[in-house]
């Protein structure tokens, strides 16, 4: 089976200026990253702010252009941004953001917005579109009488349902969700996560699920990639990666998740600040915060390589079989 979408050696460099007269500094948001997603598979992307998760999501859709590397969708190279072919392809891949209020147009009713992709891509007759909107609203758990509501008349959870219904309208084969439940209360979050899982299973949609919340990712993704400063540092099945993390960074992430009833004592609290992509450390980018860093970590960048079946990691200590003590 060929991957639905495949990213090869993606690089994205932003230029930032500290002041109006200072020289622009390159910021490597995504740095030589490769990732593939099979049809119907859910891949979770986790990492701290500034690790390049969102940039990666945008690059997979072709919204952010890659400076190097390529994105292959369904066996074909991603057409250039705003081209005719790209617009046509966008029906097949959709994006769901964190803030549903910002993603919705305040002056349109939600049924109009859910039907908008159908209008844009010219799918179906007027009657069929109406029927499809009704069907979508039912699928995401919105009541028919809410069709004429405006975004501000809905709760946060309902708005996110509307955004998801809109993303599903054109029957995409890929859904990219960028922190879709982070702004929701835990009770509502569970509703939306269950719904996403059901919809995905019913329609066989592949999904890239970007989140900083390990618990949510573990419960929705089949495979998880952990990002640190624009690179994937560990990748593996969601059943094992959080249970037996191998990379020191993944270990620290897992350990920082507060578990109800579990006290602070005995947890590995990662010291230091989240990484600044504008000042990338030499060698392994994680070495200044890594409790196990050695000389080689400060000078040489570790390659992402297979460390066990279905698991890759970028760490010198793992590659040299000096397995990190649990």
């Amino acid at each position: 089976m060929i991957p639905l979408i495949e990213a090869r050696g993606l690089v994205r460099i932003y230029e930032i200026r500290k002041g109006p007269f200072s020289r622009p500094q390159p910021v490597r948001a995504v740095d030589d990253l490769s990732l593939s997603v099979m049809p119907g598979e859910t891949v979770g992307i986790v990492g701290e702010s500034g690790s390049g998760k969102s940039t990666l999501g945008r690059m997979l859709l072709g919204i952010d252009r890659a400076q190097a590397g390529e994105v292959i969708f369904d066996g074909r190279q991603m057409p250039p941004l705003h081209s005719q072919q790209w617009r046509a392809l966008r029906a097949k891949m959709q994006l769901v953001y964190q803030d549903p209020l910002a993603a919705l147009d305040r002056r349109l009713t939600i049924s109009a917005q859910i039907g908008e992709p159908l209008d844009i891509h010219g799918i179906g007759s007027k009657e069929e579109r109406k029927e499809r909107v009704r069907e979508l609203m039912g699928a995401v758990g919105l009541r028919p009488d809410q069709a004429g509501r405006y975004p501000h008349e809905l709760s946060g959870g309902q708005r996110q349902r509307a955004v998801i219904a809109r993303a599903l309208a054109a029957r995409p084969s890929l859904l990219i969700c960028d922190e879709p439940v982070s702004a929701l209360d835990v009770s509502i979050q569970a509703q939306v996560v269950n719904m996403l899982r059901d919809l995905q299973e019913q329609n066989g949609i592949a999904m890239v699920f970007i989140s900083h919340d390990l618990k949510v990712v573990r419960n929705i993704a089949d495979r998880v990639a952990v990002m640190y400063l624009g690179k994937i540092v560990e990748e593996g099945s969601s059943d094992t990666i959080f249970q037996f993390p191998r990379h020191p960074y993944t270990k620290a992430l897992v350990s920082s998740v507060p578990v109800p009833g579990k006290r602070l004592q005995g947890r590995v609290i990662l010291q230091g600040e989240p990484p600044n992509p504008a000042a990338r450390p030499s060698g392994c980018a994680f070495h200044p915060r890594c409790p196990l860093a050695t000389d080689i970590c400060r000078t040489r960048t570790p390659e992402l390589r297979r460390i066990e079946t279905g698991r890759t990691a970028a760490c010198h200590l793992l590659a040299n079989d000096l397995a990190v003590a649990a």
Binding site: S155, G157, Q158, D185, V186, S187, I188, Q189, A190, Q191, V193, N194, R197, L214, K215, V216, R218, N219, S238, D239, F242, Q243, V254, V257, V259, P260
Partner: peptide, 24 residues
């Protein structure tokens, strides 16, 4: 109890989450 049940678990088998129906 509902608030507890809604929290996704990091370990163990992957199960359906248990939401609290409705909203505040």
């Amino acid at each position: 109890r509902g608030l507890f049940d809604a929290i996704p678990r990091l370990h163990g088998t992957r199960e359906r989450l248990i939401p609290i129906p409705g909203t505040v």
